[in-house]
Write a protein that binds this DNA or RNA. Structure first.
Lengths: 260, 260
DNA sequence: CGTAACGAACATTTTTCATGTTTGAAAGTC
DNA sequence: GACTTTCAAACATGAAAAATGTTCGTTACG
């Protein structure tokens, strides 16, 4: 493994620690200090920070990964990954949205990037995560913000529950931007969480057009809560990591696939 | 007027500028520079910042106050005022709340302080402003957060509209903490905004107990949107600035008044 | 046309933040 | 119970960021 001469930035080091702990399942403070070139004290502080963010679990002498089971990786952890691909996907989705539309925006890291772009556009925006709501609310822009009710779930603040479903039932959107936890031609659209699946289902039912965002790792993957058949998705935006055979299968089902 | 030897902090200077402009109705860049001991360029930057926050209006050569009419003072402006009294009122309201209760929290600066305290308590919390929602969401604590739907109004992010009313209609709270724009024994509870008044009305209707927060300046004042009679308020928490005769009149109407 | 005000660009100062070191306490190990 | 490792608080240091001041060309207003 490379030893870094230059001092690495705070965020880089956090990302590296997160990656090492995730890949190896755990790491000691010493190992991480040697790897990053930082002092053990700094590593301890980093681990405390990352543990507070829910990226990993602190144990005496080091840290352990949290995702030993088939759960959804914590939001804070995913936020480090594949930022570039997410940005490209988000930009492409924005290009699909026309000014003046009403847009429903699912939770998830990719959709957060979409929110970052869409808040500069004259559209009506209903984001399904607190993070996106905060992002849009804190920067006064041309976008009109509508907040759905609900109870925030987990660290990313995805809204769900009866209030969310009621809010969706009361509205109709031109476009629903749905983040995928899993999407295959055979198993359709799936989510990691039953409540989240119910919200996606309701969101899709309230929208004239459904645009799904899925980076390559999500395509061909099936999570456990079923949302609906792949045919619900009119347009899928994915990246070049997407498996070609899965893309072909989805296109055969009538979905327009845009690879960026 | 005192000339400050020491360089004053950014926030202090902003507060002083806001106060001077508000009290005098306006001020020139020169005056403010002399008053604060800062350069004119800094004052210009301050004025731009404050204007962007909606605290004052920028004019060539200086700034003017925004509140020449009977409107609600901008949130950003009110945020500077009477912080101590608001904190005391908020603390008293928290003392009135029992662990495990479900609490509806109105918008406004005082209620924001209540949110800051209640997020450390095991209660179910539904705040009616984005600022309070963000405050509770960003600090994981024992409190359970429930987000109402709605459209954020103005700079403080007070939620209102049909979605908000629907969310309130679907729930029942042990306690509603209502911020007052105006409260008198004769005219009852009033708000600055019709939509906001409708939300307050719905919130009160959904709560078993209504606790109103009103600093002394709100008591005896009547805003223009009527919410309901003063008798709707079971408990009023106010500060020592409250006019004695108004307090007496409210108590005669059955409201318990706590002065802190 | 002239003056005052403005704002962009740069220089300087101040503040904040991240990091490292030390040290004593706490937790685990034998 | 003695020893070692880990931890975290306290302080020092250095770097990054922010705030502020200065200069100067441009713009608005009389």
């Amino acid at each position: 493994m490379v030893v870094f001469n230059r001092r690495m930035s705070n965020a880089d080091r956090h990302g590296l620690i997160a990656k090492v702990v995730r890949d190896a399942g755990g790491a000691t403070v010493q190992e991480l200090a040697e790897l990053t070139g930082a002092s053990e004290m700094t590593i301890r502080r980093d681990l405390d920070t990352l543990a507070a963010q829910g990226v990993l679990e602190r144990v005496r002498g080091g840290a352990r990964t949290l995702l030993l089971r088939g759960e959804e990786p914590p939001f804070a952890l995913r936020a480090h990954e594949a930022v570039e691909a997410k940005r490209r996907i988000a930009a492409e989705i924005c290009a699909l949205v026309t000014d003046g539309e009403s847009v429903l925006l699912d939770s998830g890291t990719t959709c957060l990037e979409v929110a970052r772009l869409l808040r500069e556009r004259p559209v009506t925006l209903m984001p399904l995560s607190l993070q996106a709501i905060h992002l849009v609310a804190e920067t006064p822009g041309p976008a009109t913000l509508v907040v759905p009710g609900g109870q925030p779930r987990a660290s990313e603040g995805a809204l769900a529950g009866p209030l969310t479903l009621a809010s969706l039932a009361a509205l109709r959107f031109d476009t629903a931007v749905i983040g995928c936890c899993g999407l295959t031609a055979a198993d359709g659209l799936t989510a990691y969480d039953l409540d989240d699946a119910a919200v996606k289902k309701a969101g899709i039912a309230s929208a004239r057009r459904v645009v799904a965002a899925a980076d390559g790792s999500k395509l061909g993957h099936t999570a456990y809560a079923w949302v609906g058949p792949a045919a619900l998705v009119q347009t899928l935006v994915t990246d070049t990591d997407a498996a070609a055979e899965e893309v072909t299968a989805l296109e055969a089902g009538g979905t327009v696939v845009r690879t960026v």
